[in-house]
């Protein structure tokens, strides 16, 4: 086992068993999070990136279930663990922040107490000591007047402040891994930049590895070291961030980048990817992107492509990937 890898996900598959059949939300996804790095998962809504995150935390909602694969946290497989064992890991070794800071905090409990709860859950320390640590953590995440904010209720804080509280809550036990699920999607742009900067700082000072989930390529480009592009429950391309942006190889990734570039250039007609994400209940037989792909040939529609090497640390799930 590589010492420098914090989290290694191998062939993770998560399905939802609905009345209409099995929905493969995550299908044989593998990725590594090296120690102290920020790894991005990017893709459209419904591509399985949030479900991947929830699978790692084992916070899937009924009727979701992990059906295969390994989740290796520093070599220890989390997939077979039960609720009791997971509750020792959640918050202590892996923490998570969510998309909606508005609804992710309990409205009837002061925010300081909610952060304190996270540390009291895992450390045998007195309440006063815990409070001191909370105040310190609130300061670290850039909340001014922590003593005063400690007693505030969520509705008394702005969206950005609430997300800072969420980050403080996640980081207070100094976890090995932080999963940030669209942490800035609900915030405005200036606050977004501050929060991203804060995540980077925390990675540098505390050394926590981060999985950053976003549909926003700009956010990914700013922060990540390594990127996995997901489509319909699969990883379709993976590469170091610079390599991916310099040399996008999968037609889906190129489509995403084109639409961003065309937006930047201010084209009259926005470049988009035609069609829509396939229904996960009725996936195409061959390549899942084939129905929307400008390059798809007959063999693409027949047999599903494997991830193949395009460059140094760069894989793509397409036989026509541009080298």
């Amino acid at each position: 086992m590589d010492e420098a890898i914090t989290l290694s996900v191998r062939d993770l598959s998560t399905s939802f068993f609905s009345e209409k059949g099995e929905v493969k939300a995550v299908d044989h996804v593998s990725f590594d999070v090296p120690h102290g790095s920020i790894v991005g998962l990017v893709g459209e809504s419904g591509c399985g990136k949030s479900m991947t995150a929830r699978s790692i935390m084992k916070l899937l909602k009924y009727p979701g279930k992990i059906v295969g694969g390994e989740i290796l946290l520093e070599g220890r497989d989390l997939a077979p663990l039960g609720e009791g064992d997971m509750s020792l890991i959640r918050g202590e070794e892996i923490a998570m922040i969510f998309q909606e800071p508005m609804t992710s905090l309990n409205p009837v409990v002061p925010v300081g107490k909610q952060v304190q709860e996270a540390i009291l859950q895992h450390r045998k320390i007195s309440r006063e000591e815990a409070k001191k640590k909370v105040l310190h953590m609130l300061e670290i995440v850039g909340i001014s007047e922590p003593e005063k904010r400690y007693r505030c209720y969520p509705h008394e804080l702005s969206g950005g402040l609430r997300q800072r509280v969420m980050i403080a809550m996640a980081m207070i036990c100094r976890p090995k891994l932080l999963i940030a699920d669209e942490p800035t999607t609900a915030l405005d742009v200036t606050v977004e930049a501050q929060i991203l900067e804060l995540l980077r700082e925390l990675r540098d000072t505390i050394g926590t590895s981060i999985i950053l989930i976003s549909h926003n390529l700009g956010v990914i480009a700013q922060l990540c070291d390594y990127v996995y592009v997901m489509y319909a429950g699969q990883v379709v391309e993976q590469a170091p961030v610079l390599e991916l942006f310099d040399n996008p190889s999968h037609p889906y990734t190129r489509g995403l980048m084109d639409s961003v570039r065309s937006l930047r250039r201010g084209d009259e007609k926005l470049s988009t990817i035609p069609g829509a994400v396939p229904n996960l209940l009725r996936l195409p037989q061959g390549c899942r992107f084939a129905p929307r792909c400008p390059m798809a040939g007959e063999d693409c529609r027949r047999c599903p492509p494997e991830l193949s090497r395009v460059g140094e640390g760069h894989l793509a799930r397409c036989p026509y990937a541009r080298r």
Binding site: E83, R90, G91, E92, N106, A118, Q121, M169
Partner: peptide, 20 residues
């Protein structure tokens, strides 16, 4: 959502139900 947050902190089921 805050129920997920509580579970993500490592709260056990009973704690989540009683406290949150």
């Amino acid at each position: 959502d805050y129920i997920d947050t509580a579970r993500a902190k490592g709260r056990r089921r009973m704690g989540v139900i009683l406290f949150h």
